[in-house]
Design a protein around this nucleic acid. Structure first.
Length: 545
RNA sequence: UGGGGUGUCGCCAAGUGGUUAAGGCACCGGAUUUUGAUUCCGGCAUUCGUAAGUUCAAAUCUUGCCACCCCAGCCA
């Protein structure tokens, strides 16, 4: 097995393991807990786990960490699978922590027999109270010195359902005085009467993450268990389990920093709250930072992967600016998205001297081989309100009273009359049309070019809710995501207005930028929001556990 | 105040004792342009949290200090 050129510290470590002959092949696992949808933070984990395995010609399993049935659902399992597939990754095997419940249980009996674990009668409150503090050691449980025989019997009784939830638990016998809190006789099995989404009511005791994870990794032949930074001081416990259970070769845990994006909520806890309390339409609402939400906005998976790659895999906690993500999306879309015209905030424009017709528009200006498509237009069109100004700022290049502008792919237009409602609001622009030829002959030039939508055949559908009107009625039957993709050049081609929610401390948070912005210095775009969300309660920073 | 981590341009991030300290995002100029997009050219850290020390030579080694993050769930 050969080393590759390392592009991050994880690969450096793997290379060292290869050079030292510690591993024969790379095996990783992507380990979501099925308690919610995957979000953009998980993309980074996928990149690390699937990506690293791929690079080394190794394998990566999809591992569902389902050791806490009270939070997990099959619905999430299905959504997670779908999202990984959409991201373009393939897992070697699909495994569940629950697949190993029997093995995990047997290992617990082994630990007990070896005098490495004991059944504790203390209540959760008592355990908490005797754990000590960051600076003071904890107190040993009075049950700590029970004999293996006694512990074994008690543990079997736990499994048999002879005790109530919380009445007893199994603890690893490590060190109550350890400066590492995780090593102060951690609970490794709890009694929990809860129907598991896969094992049903077979078990009334469930293993804890810290104990089950190293076993599951070992059972899968995982060589490198890649996880986020907050598990760094769980590593000694991860290793403790492996050492005392005699795992050889023992998987190696390596931690990397989570992905953070400015003003973006990335905690499943809050995302769940948004869904459950109806702030959004669901986990796949286009405003959500979930993979499903991003998909519904028309964000290509490659752009997400590119973003995580460019942000880098490191150990330093950092927060990427949203504009970095947007840049990755724009780069991808510029290269791949087929073009369509769109208008966010429609303003009627009528052609006084033209019956309309049909024009050809390049499917993709960078890819002439994709040809053109026909776009029809009548004498009534919509342009964006931002593309007209009766009080134009300096250097304004678009339409103004008595001014000229080019309607993309049609010709040049002169604004002859501005029709207003009683309120003063502009309701219509009456224009004279000049074909490119006529304009050339007459010496008419237009500095700016604007997109337009045919008033009769333009479609809005769901798009309107999120602020856009698409030009072409020629994409029937496409779902929201595809439509957004058609339009995404426009959507992402400039700065987006943030979709804001107010936080308790005044910090603006956003679910996702949901915006449309005509590139124009000093002007905001016609963003239409379906609803404004106040998250005052949700984002209280001091939220306890 | 215990332990574990991390500190390189506004934001990411290369860098592993000898280079003028990569690159990307953002930003600022200027050119091309039927999307104020794209593309193109140019600008943007005498300095690497900080203070000493070692060395001919330090972002890279040593020591002290400072800042930030994580840990006291029978969550993951």
């Amino acid at each position: 097995m050969k080393t590759i050129e390392a592009t991050n510290f994880i690969e450096q470590i793997i290379n060292e393991d290869i050079e030292a002959g510690r591993i024969q092949a790379v095996q990783t696992r992507f380990p979501p807990e099925p308690n919610g949808y995957l979000h953009i933070g998980h993309v980074k984990s996928m990149l690390v786990n699937f990506g690293t395995a791929e690079k080394y010609g190794g394998k990566c399993n999809l591992f569902f960490d389902d050791t806490n049935p009270s939070k997990e659902k099959t619905e999430f399992v299905d959504a997670i699978r779908r999202d990984i597939e959409w991201m373009g990754y393939h897992w070697a095997k699909e495994v569940y922590a629950s697949d190993y419940f029997d093995v995990i249980y047997d290992y617990a009996e082994k630990l007990i027999s070896d005098g490495k674990a004991f059944v504790c009668d203390l209540s959760p409150e008592e355990i908490s109270a005797t754990r000590g503090t960051l600076t003071e050691p904890g107190k040993e449980s009075p049950c700590r010195n029970r004999t293996p025989e006694e512990n074994l019997e008690l543990f079997r009784n736990m499994r048999a359902g002879k005790y109530a939830d919380g009445e007893k638990c199994l603890r690893a016998k490590i060190d109550m005085a350890s400066p590492n809190m995780n090593l102060r006789d951690p609970v490794i099995y709890r009694i929990l009467r809860c129907t598991h989404h896969r094992t049903g009511d077979k078990w009334c005791i469930y293993p804890m993450y810290d104990y089950a994870h190293p076993i599951c990794d070992y059972m899968q032949g995982v060589t490198h268990s890649l996880c986020t930074l907050e598990f760094e001081d769980h590593r000694p416990l991860y290793d403790w389990v492996g050492i005392h259970l005699g795992f050889d070769p023992k998987p190696r845990q390596i931690e990397f920093a989570r992905l953070c994006v400015t003003n973006t909520v990335m905690s499943k806890r809050y995302l769940k709250k948004l869904v459950e309390e109806g702030f959004v339409h669901g986990w796949d609402d286009p405003r959500m930072p979930t993979i499903a939400g991003l998909r519904n906005r028309g964000v290509p998976p490659e752009a997400l992967l590119d973003f995580c790659t460019r942000a880098g895999i490191v150990k330093a906690n950092s927060e990427c600016q949203y504009s970095y993500l947007e840049s990755c999306i724009r780069d991808n879309l510029n290269e791949n998205a087929e073009r369509a015209m769109a208008v966010a905030s429609p303003l009627l424009l009528t052609l006084k001297n033209c019956e309309g017709g049909e024009t050809e528009a390049a499917v993709h200006p960078l890819k002439p081989e994709l040809g053109t498509r026909k776009v029809r237009f009548g004498r009534a069109l919509y342009i964006d309100r931002a593309d007209f100004s009766d009080d134009p700022p300096p250097k304004y290049q678009r339409l103004r009273p008595d001014g000229y502008v080019r309607l993309k792919n049609i010709g040049i237009v002169r604004c002859d009359e501005v029709v207003r409602l009683g309120s003063g609001e502009i309701s219509e622009l009456k224009c004279t049309y000049f074909s490119e030829e006529e304009a050339a002959v007459a010496g008419i030039k237009a500095k700016g070019t604007v997109q337009w939508v045919d008033a009769e055949t333009g479609v809005d559908a769901e798009i309107r809710q999120y602020g856009c009107l698409l030009n072409d009625a020629e994409y029937p039957g496409q779902d929201f995501g595809e439509r957004m993709n058609r339009d995404s050049e426009r959507i992402f081609s400039g700065k987006a207005e943030p979709y804001l929610a107010e936080a308790a401390d005044g910090t603006p948070f956003q679910l996702m930028r949901m915006g449309y912005y005509k590139k124009c210095r000093g002007e905001g775009g016609g963003l239409v929001l379906s609803e404004i969300v106040s998250l005052k309660d949700s984002f209280n920073k001091s939220s306890g556990r």
